[in-house]
Structures are given as structure tokens and as C-alpha cells.
Amino acid sequence: MTAAAARLGRDRAVPALLLAPAAIVAVAVLVVPFWLMAWTALTDLSYADPDRSGRFVGIANFARLATDDVFGASLLRTTAFAVAATALELVAGFGLALLLVHAVQRRRWLLTALLVPMMLAPVAVGLMWRLLLQGDFGVVTWMLRASGLLARDAAIFSNASLVMPVLVAIDVWQWTPFVTLILLAALLGLPRAPFEAATMDGAGPWRRFVDVTLPLLRPVLALVVLLRLIDAFKEFDKVWILTGGGPGDASELLSLYAYRVSFQRWDLGYGAAVAVAIYGAVLVLCTVLHRLARSR
């Protein structure tokens, strides 16, 4: 072996060695559990029924999904929740970022304050809003009733038509700062030349926003939408604590249904199929958004 070949080998081995621990951890905590889940979805495993000890059943669990009306309704509800929450967060977050872009140097405290909801654990957010919106002594409930926005004999989490809009609003409250933070960073990093050129061409603020700012931000916007959609699609903690999926099925999101099937009914094969379906839905969303972001 020549000295050059030995050096080349060393050059390749060092990065591989340095990357190996991270790669092993990634495989152990991401790839292996996913494949185990995917395999379980092809079995009849149940901790409740000893006759169902993990026999291979092919796509039977997925066929069952197609006829499960509770799953179908949850899928639609989850999609509506994720799309509504993401759209509102994008609009509100972008608006806030545009407001802050000129003030950020002088008002860093404002940015810090805005980030507080995002830094709270979802369980803490759920408990906090549970108290604030509690039907008998919740401060927000009292304010809504005092202002006439809520009837005296109504309560938000006991009303099937109010519960989803309020859950969306809580998600918007918690995650708009995340959108603001990313878009603010992107806005501050935009090159000045295209804006100067547009101004010299006579473009006003609106045309500069539509024709320069938005196209330049498109990759970042796509990324933000993607991250928020994925996260909203997997929403569990807050809803579980606030409503438990009720009243009735009014707030039964897919992740709650997957939890119920897997850890209350212990129907692990079918529960894994629901989880794989969530993964599939997120994958489809990601692919569509990725294509949209790349298309001109």
C-alpha cells in the first residue's frame, strides 16, 4: 500500500469513526423502533387477548383501518386541526416577525417574552389552560362570560362545537412565537440588493413584499409550515389533558386514538397500524410541501 492510499484510508476512517456514535444512536432510537412498529402493525399482537400472541396477519390491520369509522373521523379532524393551526400560526407569526424586524435591535426583551409559551412543556400548557378555562372558576371563562362572548350556562370544554376552535387557538398561542422566531431570523438575513433594485424600479412596499420578500422566504416558509404541520398532526399532550378526546368524539385526534387502542385496549397490532397511518399521512404532507417549495 502506498503512503497516499494509507492517508486516504485514514482520511475516510476518521470522519466515519466520529460519526459512528451518532449514527448508532440514531439507528437505535429511530430506525429500530420504527421497524419494530411497522412489523407489529403486520401482526395480531394483543396484551389483552392471550390467543393473539403476535401472529403475522399481513395487511389485515390496515384493511381494518379502512372500515373503522372512528379512525376515519379522527383522521379528518386531525387534518383540519393541523391545517387550521398551521395556517393561523403562519399568518400571525409572519405578521409579528414583520413588526419586529425593525424593532428587534432595541426590543430584545419583547422577543424573549414572546418565546415563553413555546418553552413551556405541553403538559404544563394543558394544565394551565385547563385552569384558565375551567367552567366554574376559570379566569378566562369568567372574562368571556362577563363580556357576553360566552353564555352563563355554557362551558368551553363541555361544548362539542367550541372545543376544537379553542384547541386550535391554544396551539396558535403556544406555537406562533416559533414561527415568528424563524421568520424573523430569515427576514434579518435577506440580502439588501434585491430590495434596493425593486425600489429603484418604483416598487412600493406591497410589491416589494409580494415580489421580493415572499419569493426569497419561500424555502423558509415551506420549512416552517412543514415543521408545524408535522407537530400539529402529532398533537397529544395538551388535548389529552384538556378534553381526553371529548365531549363525545369532538376532539378525538389520531394520536389520542392510537394511544387509546395501544395502551387502554392493549390491541398493539392495530395500534401500531394507526401509528403507521399517522406516519404515512405526515409523509404525504411532507412530500407535497417539498414539491410545492421546489416548484416555481
Binding site: 389483552a48 387477548d49 362539542a160 371529548g246 365531549p247 363525545g248 368524539d249 387502554q264 385496549r265 392493549w266
Partner: peptide, 23 residues
């Protein structure tokens, strides 16, 4: 019964739907 957890879950879902006026 071994299936009692799922029986409970089914009943909770339906009782909640009835209380909410969905059914």
C-alpha cells in the same frame, strides 16, 4: 374479562357522545 378494558373504552366513548348530545 380480558377484554374488559376495551369494553370500558367503548362504553365511555358512547356515553360521552350521548351526554354531548351527539347521539
Amino acid at each position: 374479562l380480558p377484554q374488559s378494558g376495551e369494553m370500558t373504552d367503548i362504553l365511555v366513548r358512547e356515553l360521552s357522545a350521548a351526554l354531548a348530545g351527539e347521539k
